[in-house]
Design a protein around this nucleic acid. Structure first.
Lengths: 170, 170
DNA sequence: GGTTTCAATTGATACCGTATCGAATGAGTG
DNA sequence: CACTCATTCGATACGGTATCAATTGAAACC
C-alpha cells in the first residue's frame, strides 16, 4: 500500500486532501485555510466599503502612527505602487491623509483620520462573530494553539535577512 | 490617536504582530504563513519550469486520473479560464494532454503524461528539503500538530452535506 | 556645486476573474 | 423521425488589479 516509503527515493505524493503526507501538504493546507479566512474577512469588510489591502494599511497606521509609504510597502508586503493606490483610495474616502514631514520634503507620511479610526473599530465589531464561526470546528483551546503555532511559523526568529526587508520597520 | 488603549469592553485591535488577539489575528497570520510557504514552494518548482497553479492541476490529475476541465476548475478553486490557460501550458510542455471523451464530444478530459508524472515526482524530491527549512523554527512534533489543526480548519466537517459539492469530488 | 542616493509617482506589462460566444448534448414536441 | 429549446462545456474577449521598470524631485555626501 502506501506504508512502504523508503526515504530518499519516493516521498508520499501530494493529494491536497486530509491526511496528505507529502512535502507539499503544509503549503496546500495553508492555501485552503488562508482562502477560507480571506473570504470571511473580505465579506466582513465589504459593508464598510473597504477591502483587505486597505485594512492592512490601516492596521499599520494605527500601530505605528504616521508612516511613510516606503515603510507601509515593507510592512504590508505589497509594492510601493500598490501602497500608493491604496492610500489614494483611503484619502479619497477620508480615512487617511498624506501629511508633509517637516524635516524631509520628499517623504509623505500617511496618517489615519478620526473617520478612519471609527471605521477601524467598526471592522473589528463586524469581524468578531465571523471569526467565531471560522473556528467553530475546533475544540476549546485549539484556536489559541493554532494561533501560537502560526505565530512562530509566520514570524521566524532570524528572518531579518530578507532581500527586501518585509517586517515591522520601526 | 493612541493605539495602545484597550477598551474594557471592546475587542483588542488588530496589530499584525506576534501576540495579536484581535478578530483579524488568525487571518493575518494565515496570510503571512501562506505567503512564506508559497514562496518556498514556488522557488522549489521554478527549476522544473512550472508554477504552483500548474502543480495544483497535476495533483488532481494524479489523484483522479483523467479529469474534465470543469472538475479541474472546481478542484483547484480557480475558474474555467484559468484552468484552460494552465492546461495550455501543460500541453505545450508535454506534461499533460487533452483527450477526447468517447461519449461526449464537447468535453475534453485532461490526462497527465509519463513526462508529467516524472516531473511530478521530481517536484517532491525538490520540495522536501525546502519544507524542512520551513518548519525548522518549530519544536519536535509541532509541525504535525500544526498540520492536524490546519487540516480540521481547512476541511471543516459537513462537507458531504452540501447540496452541490464544489470540491473534493472524488 | 556636482554627484549620488532615496522616496514618490508614473507608465507599461502580465496576470486573474467575469462576461460572452460557439459547439454539442439531451429533453421535449409535433 | 425531424425539429426546437434549454443546458452545459470549452474557448475567447474584455476589465480590473497587481507587479515590474523608468522618471522626477529632493536630500545627503564629497
Amino acid at each position: 500500500m502506501t506504508a512502504d516509503v523508503p526515504p530518499g527515493t519516493a516521498a508520499p505524493r501530494a493529494t491536497d486532501r486530509p491526511g496528505d503526507q507529502s512535502p507539499f501538504a503544509l503549503g496546500l493546507l495553508l492555501r485552503r485555510a488562508h482562502w477560507r479566512a480571506q473570504t470571511v474577512m473580505t465579506e466582513a469588510l465589504r459593508p464598510l466599503g473597504i477591502e483587505l489591502r486597505h485594512f492592512s494599511v490601516l492596521i499599520v497606521l494605527v500601530n505605528q502612527g504616521p508612516t511613510v509609504q516606503r515603510d507601509l510597502a515593507a510592512a504590508t508586503g505589497t509594492d510601493k505602487a500598490g501602497v500608493m493606490r491604496v492610500v489614494d483610495d483611503l484619502e479619497r474616502k477620508g480615512l487617511a491623509v498624506r501629511k508633509a514631514v517637516p524635516g524631509d520634503r520628499r517623504v509623505r507620511a500617511v496618517e489615519i483620520t478620526a473617520q478612519g479610526m471609527e471605521l477601524f473599530d467598526m471592522a473589528h465589531a463586524a469581524a468578531e462573530p465571523q471569526v467565531g464561526r471560522l473556528v467553530a470546528g475546533l475544540r476549546a483551546g485549539e484556536a489559541e494553539q493554532l494561533t501560537d503555532l502560526l505565530t512562530r511559523f509566520a514570524h521566524p526568529a532570524g528572518e531579518s535577512a530578507r532581500p527586501a526587508g518585509e517586517e515591522d520597520a520601526v
